[in-house]
């Protein structure tokens, strides 16, 4: 039988990893909304940010700022993520506006390899497995032990999600971004700064990817193949509906739970089935709701 202590631990871990998945997937959704395309370079932005944080924090540590290293490194990664998103919008998305979405998807695949190369160049001899230097805190809540990696992941992923969802839903800027996402053509006729808002959306997607990446790497450790988790997070995006921003939290948590639970319960006879289980869930949901759980089905008045 499953004991309740193990269940508590696994629930907690599912929630943490679910939040991280949600934050990782958020970038896909933000870009999809404005450019109607899947940004295949998003995993590489995450990868780049993860190594930028590592390099920056070790640089700061060697200059006697070890205690601030992680925080400042994260900040640098956030700036890099934002700038990368903006650069991609200017160089790829803007010239391909009005072309079939497939062209943009292909272009982002190219950008994926370029950014991966940049990440390697930034990391140099640190292009290996490593982990962030985090303070050795740990808090016991009954059977659940919360350590610094959990706190970093929750704060970064949760904060990113909360900030961007509030921005989208409740600010004038967010409403304008939603208008541009729905109909860029009409928006420019009414004088909305479509170019700026599209660029800002890509930038925010990059920023979200960077922060989520650091959250992920604090849990899993830094490794060159960390971008594979981001592809997995695409399942959370599809599950939620690619054009839904708030729905991603549900999508991410569902993915986290299914993944961790099936890993735990199926470990003995189907090891490593967790990732597949997440995608099976996604397929089942898409069969019933092709736009995802929260995706907008276009309103048609009858």
């Amino acid at each position: 039988m499953v004991d309740s202590a193990a269940l508590a631990v696994i629930t907690f871990q599912s929630t943490v990893i679910g939040l991280v998945f949600a934050a990782l997937g958020l970038g896909f959704n933000i870009v999809y909304r404005v450019s109607k395309s899947i940004n295949l370079a998003h995993p590489a932005i995450v990868l780049l940010a993860v190594y930028v944080t590592l390099v920056a924090s070790s640089y700061l540590a060697s200059h006697g700022l070890a205690s601030l290293g992680f925080a400042l490194g994260t900040l640098v990664a956030a700036v890099v993520g934002f700038a990368t998103g903006v650069a991609m919008e200017i160089t790829i998305a803007r010239p391909l506006r009005g072309r079939p979405p497939v062209a943009l998807i292909a272009a982002t695949l190219g950008a994926y390899y370029i950014l991966k190369g940049v990440a390697k160049a930034v990391a140099r001899d640190m292009w290996t497995t490593a982990s962030y230097r985090l303070p050795g805190i740990s808090i016991s809540l009954g059977p659940v032990v919360v350590d610094a990696t959990d706190i970093a992941a929750i704060v970064l992923a949760g904060g990113t999600l909360a900030a961007l969802i509030v921005l989208h839903r409740f600010t004038r800027l967010g409403v304008a971004m939603r208008a541009v996402a729905e109909d860029p053509y009409g928006a420019s006729a009414y004088g909305l700064p479509v170019k700026t808002l599209t660029m800002l959306s890509w930038g925010l997607a990059g920023l979200a990817g960077a922060l989520a990446g650091v959250a992920l790497a604090s849990k899993t450790g830094v490794e060159p193949s960390i971008d594979l988790y981001v592809l997995e997070a695409l399942a959370a995006s599809l599950l939620a509906g690619l054009d839904s921003v708030a729905g991603i939290v549900v999508g991410g948590l569902a993915l986290g739970f299914v993944r961790q639970m099936s890993n735990y319960f199926l470990m003995s006879w189907l090891p490593g089935f967790g990732d597949a289980a997440a995608f099976i869930l996604m397929l089942l949901v898409l069969l019933v709701k092709p736009y995802g759980l929260f995706g907008t089905e276009r309103i048609e008045r009858v």
């Binding site: 004038r172 304008a176 939603r178 208008a179 009414y190 004088g191 909305l192 700064p193």
Partner: peptide
């Protein structure tokens, strides 16, 4: 929200 979005511009 329609009005807000355009007013933002």
């Amino acid at each position: 929200e329609n009005i807000e979005a355009v007013a933002y511009a």
